[in-house]
């Protein structure tokens, strides 16, 4: 078989094993579910809060937004966080020491994050449908839209995580990426309609995928009349697809170069230096 194809195939097997490993590691499952449980619990209390002009409660409206946000967060930080750790513990260097290993590692890692995120999303969807009134998921066109938005968000954010992971050499700099991302959530209309914000904040929010992920999921799961509280009273379906596809294309364009640069620089001594630096910064 063609060695490159073989590396992709082996990487896919890695994705499946990684997924199995993550799902059977209690700390990983709890680490993912815990923030979600908190988020959903908060939303449960918001079921009694009405928004003017919307047919559903704030809780029900925010549930799809939370799903959208989670895919962005899981895609970007699932990939980024593990890559940063894997450069410190030698997983990446090991991959580099085997033929086709780096390709296999990346395919496996990105694939497993995508699978695991999609799995968590399915759990959230079920929770949403059971506990939140007004969510609509009863027709094939809803399913199709939901899946299309899910795939598109993953396609936009998983490579973005890889780009950031290739750029971020020091685990201690994770916060530099995380804090702006958290700030972004506040201006992306996840927990309250974005239209409540000043125009300039709305403009910034609409540059990044988090807003569009939330919008896409609301589009997929809320009754059509909920569009009344969105910008321009429109789901802006085409714009959403274009913006997310643009993020995806941009990340995928940069990722190969940055990843091979990262791979080229990886060695036992750079890893040891990184580890030492991490210990110094912490101790």
């Amino acid at each position: 078989m063609n060695p490159t194809m073989h590396a992709y195939k082996t990487g896919w097997r890695r994705a499946l094993i990684e997924t199995k490993v993550t799902l059977t590691t209690p700390s990983d499952v709890i680490g993912t579910l815990f923030p979600l449980v908190i988020g959903v619990t908060v939303l449960l209390f918001l079921r009694g809060v009405d928004i003017e002009g919307a047919p559903v409660s704030l809780g029900s409206m925010s549930m799809p937004s939370l799903i959208g946000m989670f895919i962005v967060w899981g895609g970007v930080f699932g990939v980024l966080g593990t890559m940063v750790m894997d450069r410190t513990n030698g997983t990446m260097l090991r991959a580099k020491s085997m033929p086709g290993g780096m390709t296999g590692y990346l395919v496996g890692h990105l694939g497993s994050i995508a699978i695991f995120t999609a799995f968590s999303v399915m759990v959230m969807l079920v929770v949403g449908l059971v506990f939140f009134d007004g969510l609509e998921f009863a027709s094939p066109d809803r399913w199709l839209l939901f899946l299309a938005v899910l795939v598109l968000i993953l396609a936009a954010t998983v490579p973005l995580g890889a780009v950031l992971g290739a750029l971020l050499d020091n685990p201690n700099n994770m916060a530099l990426v995380m804090l702006p991302f958290m700030g972004l959530i506040a201006i992306s209309g996840i927990f309250y309609p974005i239209t409540a914000l000043p125009d300039w904040l709305q403009a910034i929010g609409q540059v990044f995928p988090t807003y569009w992920a939330g919008l896409g999921m609301r589009h997929a799961l809320l009754p059509d009349s909920a569009v009344a509280v969105e910008i321009g009273q429109s789901w802006r379906t085409l714009t959403m697809f274009i913006v997310l596809a643009a993020w995806s294309a941009a990340s995928m364009a940069f990722a190969p170069k940055l990843l091979s640069r990262m791979a080229r620089r990886e060695s036992g001594s750079t890893m040891a230096a990184r580890r030492e630096k991490m210990q110094q910064d912490w101790g």
Binding site: N2, P3, T10, R13, N89, G90, L93, R94, G101
Partner: peptide, 29 residues
């Protein structure tokens, strides 16, 4: 083959799974 001083990779994997997976990478060669 390369054996480094301090490899702590793939800590959550099981021993046999890891070796079987690594073997796969070499199959074309």
């Amino acid at each position: 083959g390369i054996v480094l001083q301090e490899w702590r990779d793939n800590g959550k994997w099981r021993v046999r799974d890891l070796l079987a997976h690594f073997a796969d990478y070499y199959r074309p060669y």
